[in-house]
């Protein structure tokens, strides 16, 4: 039982990343009708916002310590972070330690700006073009963004740890009535799950309970009628593109302590996220979230040794298998709307 709960938690964790990326993808598709293959790259850029802020916080000046020797036998160079000097050892060191959570504040404006530039600068020119053209141009853009990151940060993963207090694990089993040490789970993975729930709830609340959200939902349902009513729906959709970019970026920021980011991480998630969107139903926001968590959990259970001993390799194909079954039985996906991508 404890093994099942552990894999369930793992599934929620994987599902969190899938759901956040798929949510952004669906927002863009639902509002602008664009199939955005650069969305994985936005996730990756978000992760590199965390790397960048960590590097900025770690900026140091070098002093020579004649007492210590380096590996060549020369006087050692000691790095002293500016933050520690400016704010003292407590506040300065805490800022460096909390660089990843603080990067959320840094990433939101950066990602909204990148989303805005992407939409106004490139993607808006492809609204009336076929989906194949949109896929080609956004995929090309993803490759360009990857190469830009590779140029500045190199090809290798960059360790970006969580704050000290979240680096260990917690005894999750005790919280739900199990024996001590039965279910140990990494603290940061639980933080990631809770964070993704918060973001998902915030996006839904924004769309559901604000006037702006109401107009956007109306535009998603019938763009022309909203336009006739004198509302500049394009402007609102551009803002939604920025919000979708920010959602992907925040997913990336908080993912960095789980896996050291590299320039390719967006592509690793891109294909899976599209499967998530298709299974959830094109254009359906609840579908994307449901499907993200569902596929994460199923994938996690498929990784169990007991399952793999019965069906070797099932963990590698289970997501695609489910996608095939869903498309055959429910061609619009789990919660897809009639008329989306069907004309």
């Amino acid at each position: 039982m404890d093994a099942l709960i552990l894999q369930f938690l793992n599934g929620l964790d994987k599902g969190s990343a899938y759901a956040l990326i798929a949510l952004g993808l669906t927002l863009i598709f639902g509002t602008l009708g664009v199939v955005n293959f650069a969305h994985g790259a936005l996730f990756m850029i978000g992760a590199f916002c965390a790397v960048t802020l960590s590097k900025i916080f770690a900026l140091s000046h070098t002093t020579i310590d004649p007492e210590k020797l380096d590996f060549l036998g020369n006087p050692a160079k000691i790095q002293s972070p500016y933050l520690v000097e400016w704010f003292g050892p407590n506040v300065g060191a805490a800022m460096i330690d909390w660089a990843v959570p603080l990067a959320i504040l840094f990433a939101i404006p950066v990602m909204i700006a990148i989303g805005f530039i992407m939409e106004r600068g490139l993607i808006k020119h492809f609204y009336k073009r076929p989906h194949a053209d949109q896929i080609l141009v956004t995929f090309g853009l993803a490759i360009v963004l990857q190469e830009v990151i590779k140029y500045f940060y190199g090809a290798n993963p960059i360790p970006t740890p969580a704050p000290e207090m979240f680096r260990g694990s917690i005894d999750f089993g005790v919280l739900i009535g199990f024996d001590p040490n039965a279910i140990i789970y990494p603290a940061w993975r639980l933080v990631y799950f809770l964070f993704s729930c918060l973001i998902i709830a915030a996006v839904f609340a924004f769309l559901q309970f604000t006037t702006f959200g109401m107009v956007v939902r109306a535009g998603m349902a019938d763009r022309e009628t909203v336009g006739i009513l004198g509302i500049d729906i394009d402007k609102r959709f551009t803002i939604m593109f920025g919000i979708a970019a920010a959602v992907a970026g925040l997913a990336g920021v908080m993912y960095t302590p789980i896996n050291s980011p590299n320039y390719h991480m967006g592509m690793d998630f891109l294909v899976l996220s599209f499967v998530v969107v298709v299974v959830g139903g094109m254009g359906s926001l609840p579908g994307a979230v449901l499907s993200g968590f569902l596929l994460g959990i199923v994938q996690s259970f498929a990784s169990m040794n007991e399952v793999k001993s019965l069906l070797p390799g099932i963990d590698q194909i289970i997501i695609y298998l489910i996608a095939i079954i869903v498309i055959l039985t429910r061609p619009r996906g789990l919660m897809g709307r009639k008329g989306v991508m069907e004309e």
């Binding site: 793992n10 140990i184 896996n259 991480m265 690793d268 990784s303």
Partner: peptide
Amino acid sequence: PLAETDFSSYIAPVLNS
């Protein structure tokens, strides 16, 4: 798999093995 980056699903079963 060589391309794997998230080993959590592989590590979880170790805990109770």
